[in-house]
Nucleic acid binder design. Structure first.
Lengths: 157, 157
DNA sequence: CCCATATCGTTCGTGTACGCACGATGGCCA
DNA sequence: TGGCCATCGTGCGTACACGAACGATATGGG
């Protein structure tokens, strides 16, 4: 296709306003984070080993694998998801028989979540591919840059 | 509230499998990118000056402000959005009278997009807040770390 | 000139993401 | 002990995000 994007483009208006000392959207953190997150998700999807498992579902299962049993709200805090978002993620995992729930005997407001045997089996299979997904995502970086990126991201989360 | 998350937590199963040399989800790029993107979006929403404008809508308007007129597909490529996603973003911007469209006289498949006067007025107002939003997002970092982060993110996008 | 192939925009389905409001429950303090 | 306030999970509305399928249009090679 040789699609040359710049082909029939007019020049950017540029030097538009005097105050804007070159504000380029491509250089803003928020923009770059969105793009980087998109790419990471795409790599995850092909590399994790099950096209039906999403990054958030994976995070949730990994945490449930660590803690055995967690309330829905606490799980959400541990993986950084809104309770409304968590609700949807958990519902889909339950529909697929990967997660089970029971009322918390000590607090009737809570639902305790845990992996089913099937869920445990799956997450242990996916965990094998986890490191490779992370490696692939950071492939363009040197080892030192990879450590830097992780450190910097940790600071702004 | 003093909500101590670790209160009634069982110990993580830890040291579970011999092969897993401490794979922590919190240290994976994909996970950190998701969290960082969430935080950046939240900061954008309160800082950009109009709670009804989303980051993607903003990016689109900024690009249209630079180029005056673009096809929907090309705009999508410039701001890193799928054509299906672009369709929804553009539809909402049109519904609010911020963007106009006309058929491309030279290619009947294309739709040419441009900002309305109202859209131009708005984006120029929002652009004033853009730098502050980026600053706030990277506040936890030193000036040097901020430059590093932008550089590293550029490489993995 | 015609047809295979590509591009453009739309639609549908699924899945995050989150604010808000709601009802039920729990904890604490007057 | 009774009432106030916080927490828990759910439901609703809106907005990205993207694969897949679709019809209309463009283009280039035979």
């Amino acid at each position: 296709m040789r699609g040359n994007v710049a082909k029939k483009l007019q020049e950017p208006k540029s030097a538009s306003s005097p105050a804007s000392r070159s504000y380029r959207i491509e250089e803003q953190v928020g923009y770059l984070l969105r793009r980087a997150h998109q790419r990471a998700s795409a790599i995850f999807q092909v590399g994790i080993g099950d096209p039906n498992i999403t990054p958030t579902q994976y995070s949730s299962m990994v945490k449930l694998n660590e803690y055995t049993e967690l309330s829905q709200n606490l799980l959400g805090r541990l993986v950084g998801m809104d309770k409304a978002t968590m609700q949807g993620v958990v519902r889909r995992l339950k529909e697929r028989g990967l997660v089970d729930s029971r009322p918390d005997p000590g607090d009737a407001r809570r639902t305790l979540l845990s992996l089913t045997t099937e869920g445990q089996r799956l997450v242990n299979k996916l965990l094998i591919n986890g490191p490779a997904v992370s490696r692939e995502t950071m492939k363009p970086l040197t080892a030192q840059e990879q450590r830097q990126l992780l450190e910097l991201l940790s600071k702004i989360v």
